[in-house]
Amino acid sequence: MEQVVTALPDHDGVRVIFCAGEFDQDSLDPFSQAAEEAVADPTVRRIVLDLSQVAFADSSMLNELVRLRRTGHPLVLAGPLAPQLSRLFELTSAHQIFTITDSIDEARAL
């Protein structure tokens, strides 16, 4: 089951979106809505996605990540990533286009 909880931007304009569970084309709506809200908020200067609790994601989740990246907002993915998600990024070479950190603290500090 998917779960997305969005934290409001803190004093430095970082919006953190926490994702947990499994994501495919049938369960992306909460994530997509949280991402759209972050993009639409003019106070957000960076979006951090905490993917450390994502157990499974398919190509539809990857497509949403790419779409979010194309909005032009600075985007950082925080891990550690689950083996399945790491493999998806490796197989598609997506790890080359995203900034991926080992922790939420590291992602916020960038």
Results as ranks from 00 to 15, higher is better:
A55L: 13
D10N: 13
T6C: 09
A7C: 10
T71K: 10
H11D: 14
I97E: 03
E36I: 03
E36S: 12
D105Q: 14
A78S: 11
C19I: 04
F18T: 06
A78M: 07
V5S: 13
R45S: 12
P42R: 08
A40R: 14
V39W: 05
Q33E: 13
E22C: 13
F18W: 09
Q96E: 14
V4K: 07
F18H: 14
D105I: 10
A94Q: 01
S103Q: 10
A35T: 10
E37T: 10
V16A: 03
D105S: 14
F98Q: 06
R69W: 12
A94E: 01
T71I: 08
I104G: 11
S93H: 13
T43R: 12
V66Y: 00
M61C: 15
I104L: 15
S93W: 01
S60R: 10
A34V: 05
D29S: 13
V44H: 04
P74A: 14
G13P: 01
Q33Y: 07
L28I: 04
Q53F: 10
L81S: 06
D105E: 15
G72E: 09
E36P: 00
V39G: 01
T6P: 03
L77Y: 03
V5F: 10
D58A: 08
A34M: 06
A82C: 11
P83D: 12
D12A: 12
N63E: 06
A57I: 06
P42Y: 04
V44L: 07
S60Y: 04
F18K: 07
L110F: 15
P83G: 06
R67A: 15
F56K: 02
E36W: 03
R45H: 07
I100E: 04
E90F: 10
A57P: 00
A34T: 00
A109M: 09
Q33S: 13
D26W: 10
L51H: 03
D58K: 07
S32H: 01
S32T: 12
A55G: 09
D26E: 12
Q84L: 15
E36G: 04
L65S: 03
M61K: 00
D29H: 06
L49T: 02
A107E: 02
V54T: 04
I100K: 06
V16C: 06
L49A: 05
L62D: 02
I104E: 13
S93N: 13
A40F: 04
A57R: 00
P42T: 09
D10G: 13
T92P: 07
S103N: 09
D29T: 14
I17H: 01
I47D: 01
I100V: 15
D58Y: 03
L85M: 11
I47C: 09
E90A: 15
L110I: 15
E22A: 13
V14W: 01
E64T: 14
M61A: 15
F56I: 08
